[in-house]
Nucleic acid binder design. Structure first.
Lengths: 203, 203
DNA sequence: GCAGTTACTGACAAAAATGTCGATAAGCAA
DNA sequence: TTGCTTATCGACATTTTTGTCAGTAACTGC
């Protein structure tokens, strides 16, 4: 009979599945505890593998971080792009704004943006810019959107969407409000603001 | 004659001045390069002292970080509180908003807020909350500000102020706008939004 | 001057984090 | 089964970062 010396059977994944497993664990850590939690041992433990396994797939711990950025940015961008557009211009604007807020609310996308900003990796938001611009032109109905007012409103919308995603819960709570309050208030403000901008811009 | 063996004369400061010197250096690093730059050697080098000197005054590197938080939060709060209030309610609201944006624009206060949020130190924003509430009640003229609309407008203002301070420059640039554009646009949006909120709330 | 206090420092020790390497075993193909 | 590839791992080596300590020198009060 075999005694204590038995080691638990190894899990052997495909390289893709293994990378995915590690990245998901890293994302969980990042969203839950911030960038400082992305240490080799932490990531490996969270993913349930040995330190060496992480390095086998990503080379260095910076490699993990870089790959995680790519992944999260890609998800953010696809979230920004994926929406259907009502025909009515006004409804389309509202839907686009909703979509914007959704994109920065889920999966810590706003935290990613803040992280990139804080660590001077903000150039990586360039990809996001293109998505946002596409959304602007295609979805909000601003093909001729060189009108200053409308573009400004959009700029503010993006900032507010990220801000609500990042600070909304905390600030709502600190000010003694229910958690979703910030989002609702921001949407209301933007609705009137955007409509007015669109009106003045002649749409 | 004395040759090469001479060491440069030591600078000897008062404990307070020395702590201040180190904290200022740390703040420079934090604002310029993000949280990951707060390493003992980095801080010491930036401050122009030996590693051991930093530890002599703060015990550990975490002590430096904690003291820096206190300092930056205190400055942020005093920045929030320091303003004079026009008599006219409408002008007072505008001034308060301006002040809010100023407070989160200078000295990386918005970056501090983001850092606190990312690292789950957001409870430390509690002090800020009280300042914001004071400003709200005293300066915006909302003593009876349990009106939902007005309070919501204020909540959004805070989020937008931080968001502009944090992301304004980068996003303006990414979207092909001059740097100060985000702030101007946000102020314009808030002006109409706040006025409307105040009107509907019956002020 | 002189003595006492302490801010300051370099050299060293300790701890923590990253990265290397050979061995192992899981899967696959023949 | 047999052999090959390689994902996985523990043990170890390296690097980085933090913290300790005893000595030095700048200031203060006498």
């Amino acid at each position: 009979m075999s005694i204590s010396k038995s080691t638990p059977p190894r899990i052997r994944r495909s390289p893709e599945a293994s990378r995915e497993n590690i990245l998901i664990a890293a994302e969980r850590l990042l969203v839950g505890q911030g960038p400082q939690s992305l240490r080799l041992a932490d990531v490996a433990k969270e993913a349930g593998v040995a330190n060496a396994t992480v390095l086998h797939h990503f080379g260095t711990i910076d490699g993990v971080q870089a790959a995680l950025m790519e992944k999260m940015i890609a998800e953010l961008v696809s979230g920004l792009m994926a929406m259907d557009v009502p025909d009515d211009p006004r409804a389309a604007r509202a839907a686009a704004i909703q979509n914007l807020f959704d994109a920065f609310e889920t999966k810590g996308a706003a935290r990613l943006a803040a992280w990139l900003e804080l660590t001077d990796e903000s150039r990586r938001l360039r990809t996001v810019r293109e998505a946002v611009q596409t959304v602007i032109r295609l979805k909000i109905g601003a093909e001729e959107a060189d009108e200053a007012r409308l573009e400004d409103a959009i700029l503010v919308s993006v900032i507010l969407a990220i801000g609500v995603g990042l600070f909304g819960p905390t600030l709502s709570e600190l000010l003694g409000k229910p958690r979703g309050r910030a989002r609702a208030a921001a949407l209301r403000l933007l609705e009137t603001g955007l409509e007015e901008a669109a009106r003045k811009a002649g749409h």
